[in-house]
């Protein structure tokens, strides 16, 4: 059912990572991504893998769900791996058959690239989307970007738009479902014909959907005014987030991770790529 759509990948819980300030998590995720790209040796990859597994353990998100979240990545993973196996040039020939030459370095590089992509996605989503509700995430972005208010950037408005968009996704999905049923009842056909014909069949769905979305927007604007909304100035928040010991631990841990990876590249340059 379309109605059962989940917003993002948020996995509710009260783990160590769940209780960390969204701002710390966003910064930690950025540091983690940098660390992933700094990995250049076998040793550093072992450290990265250990760190990623530790993050998963700290998040309390079941491994099954994380593996499921990687599914949309299969195509990109397969493409990068195969491309690197066949086209990477090295010194040690592994297989040579007609015009295909596979080098040892190519296989190693392909594996490392695959691993890098998996770590990149798992680590950053465990740090952010799995353990932070969409509203906390937009809140975190708003607070992180708040210095931009000084140059008159509409940071609050931007965050408000994001959270309202998130709020209305399920409502509009449900509405699309309803309109499609109504148009089917009038004889519309969405499931036959070529690509162009199908795309055309969607016009009678999109037009009423847009009209209704604008009406909703206007209703919502009036309702927000009635609830004394006047932009970000003078506004307080119910959930006061403040940095605690957990935040310091996570932040320090990611900085250490990056440092250790760089050092391991220098002192254990085994299989440098």
């Amino acid at each position: 059912m379309l109605k059962d759509i989940t917003l993002g990948q948020f996995f509710p819980g009260r783990s160590f990572l769940h209780r960390i300030d969204p701002r710390t998590k966003i910064i930690a995720a950025l540091l983690y991504i940098v660390a992933v790209f700094l990995c250049d040796s076998i040793m550093s990859f072992i450290i990265l893998l250990a760190a990623t597994l530790a993050l998963i353990a700290l998040s309390g998100v079941p491994v099954k769900i994380i593996v499921k979240g990687l599914k949309p990545l299969i195509f990109i993973l397969a493409f990068t791996t195969i491309y690197n196996v066949f086209f990477y040039k090295g010194d040690h020939i592994l297989v040579h058959w007609k015009f295909i030459t596979i080098y040892l370095e190519g296989v190693v590089f392909a594996l490392i690239m695959g691993l890098r992509i998996i770590c990149l996605l798992t680590g950053s989503s465990v740090l952010m989307t799995y353990t932070t509700s969409p509203i906390m995430l937009t809140d975190g972005i708003e607070r992180l970007l708040s210095p931009l208010n000084k140059i008159k950037a509409p940071v609050h408005e931007f965050a408000m738009m994001m959270s309202i968009a998130l709020r209305f996704i399920p409502t509009l999905v449900e509405e699309t479902d309803k309109i499609m049923c109504a148009q089917k009842a009038r004889g519309a056909d969405f499931s036959s014909g070529g690509l162009i014909k199908r795309a055309r069949a969607l016009i009678p769905v999109l037009v009423p959907l847009f009209i209704s979305a604008f009406r909703r927007a206007s209703d919502l604007a009036v309702a927000m005014e009635c609830r004394c909304y006047r932009g970000g100035s003078g506004r307080t928040r119910m959930t006061k987030t403040h940095f605690g010991a957990r935040d310091v631990i996570l932040f320090t841990a990611t900085v250490i991770l990056g440092t250790v990876i760089v050092l391991s590249n220098i002192y254990f340059p085994i299989w440098m790529i």
Partner: peptide, 25 residues
């Protein structure tokens, strides 16, 4: 009812009005 709820979580929506008024957390 759909067009007057702002937030994705019930209690955050109820808090919207007092937040606009600048009430203490």
């Amino acid at each position: 009812p759909d067009n007057q709820l702002v937030a994705t979580i019930v209690e955050e929506d109820v808090a919207f009005g007092p937040e606009n008024l600048g009430v203490e957390p």
